[in-house]
Design a protein around this nucleic acid. Structure first.
Lengths: 168, 168
DNA sequence: TCGAACTTTCAAAATATACTGAAACTTAAT
DNA sequence: ATTAAGTTTCAGTATATTTTGAAAGTTCGA
C-alpha cells in the first residue's frame, strides 16, 4: 500500500470509529488528518484535503479545541490561524475519557443518586426490582467513574503496567 | 419522588446515555423498561408503556436479543411471546463490552495492523508522522482490547477488586 | 384447510443531524 | 476611513436515522 492511500484509510477508519462513539464523522476525520500532519494546517488546507466547506471546518475545529485535542497556533506576521493536533495518544485517550465522563457519566450518576433514594413499598415486586436495578447500576457507574478518574490522573506506562499486570 | 415518576426518569436517563453511546434511544428505553419490570412483558405491553409502534418494538427487541441483553420467553399454552431482561448489571456491562469490541474495536485493529506495515521514506516527515501515529494508536487499541477481553472473562468482584485495589 | 392470534417486514413518512455557502463580522495594515 | 485577509454565523438544504402502520407471513387449534 502506498502512503497516500494509507493516510486515506486511516482517516476513514478514525472517522468510522468516531461516529460509532458519538463523535461526528467529520470531526473525527479532521482530527485524523491533523494527527497525520507533522505541522499545523490552515482552514483552507483542511477544506481542500477533506472536501468540506469552510463553515464546517470552522465549527469542527472549534469542537476539537473544546475537546482539548487540537490547538490554534498563531504565527508572527500572519493573519491565518493554524491548527495543530496533539500527537500523544495517551493524552488523546485521557482527554476523551475526561470529556465524556464530564458530559455523560456525571449527569447520569447524579440522576441515579436521586433515584436510589426513592422510597416505596418493600413488599411490592415493582418497587423491589426498581430499587435493586437502580442501586446496582449506580454501583457500577461509580466504579467506572473512579477508574476513569484514576486514568485521567495517571501516567501512561504506570496505568497499563498496573492493569496488564493484574490481568496477565 | 413517587415510583412512577422515578421509573420514567430512569427510562429517560438510560435512553439518553444509550444514544450518547451509539445505541438508539428507543432500544435503550425498552431495555430500561424491561430492567424495571420484575417479570417478562409482551409486545403489546411495551408498545403501551412507551407509546411506540408494533414494528418498532419488534425490531428493537430483536436487537436487544442480538446484543444478548434480553431473552424471549414462551409460555405453555400461550401464543404470545414474552420478553425478559437479564437484571445482572455485571452481565450487562460485559455483554455490551463484548459486542462493541467485536463490532468496533476488532475491525479497527485489523486496519491498523495493515497500516503499521506500510513502508516509506524514513527521511520524509510525512511518513514519519504517519508511522508513529499509527503505531501508537495501534498499541493503545491493543491494550484496550486486552483489558476488555479480561473483563469479559472475569468475575465481577474479582475485576473491580483488582482494579480498585491498584487505584486505591 | 380455515381462520384467529400473533409476528415480521419494509416502503414511506417523520425526525434528527450534519453541511453548505454566502453574508456579517473582525482585525490590522495603509 | 478604507480595504483586504481572514473568521464566524446560521438559515436553508441535504443526508442519515428512526418510526410508523399496514400488508404479508407464520403458527396452531378446531
Amino acid at each position: 500500500m502506498e502512503l497516500p492511500e494509507a493516510k486515506q484509510k486511516f482517516i476513514e477508519a478514525w472517522g468510522k470509529l468516531g461516529s460509532e462513539w458519538g463523535i461526528n464523522r467529520t470531526m473525527a476525520q479532521v482530527h485524523a488528518l491533523l494527527l497525520l500532519t507533522p505541522d499545523a494546517l490552515t482552514t483552507e488546507e483542511i477544506m481542500e484535503a477533506l472536501s468540506i466547506s469552510r463553515g464546517n471546518v470552522n465549527m469542527t475545529v472549534r469542537d476539537l479545541i473544546n475537546w482539548g485535542l487540537v490547538e490554534k497556533q498563531l504565527r508572527a506576521g500572519e493573519r491565518k490561524e493554524y491548527f495543530y493536533a496533539d500527537k500523544d495518544t495517551w493524552n488523546i485517550a485521557r482527554q476523551v475519557a475526561k470529556e465524556r465522563r464530564k458530559r455523560e457519566l456525571d449527569p447520569v450518576i447524579k440522576i441515579l443518586d436521586e433515584l436510589v433514594k426513592v422510597e416505596g413499598d418493600k413488599k411490592d415486586p415493582g418497587y423491589k426490582t426498581f430499587h435493586k436495578t437502580v442501586t446496582d447500576i449506580n454501583k457500577l457507574a461509580k466504579n467506572v467513574d473512579k477508574t476513569l478518574e484514576t486514568m485521567i490522573k495517571a501516567d501512561e506506562s504506570w496505568f497499563w503496567g498496573s492493569i496488564l499486570k493484574i490481568f496477565k
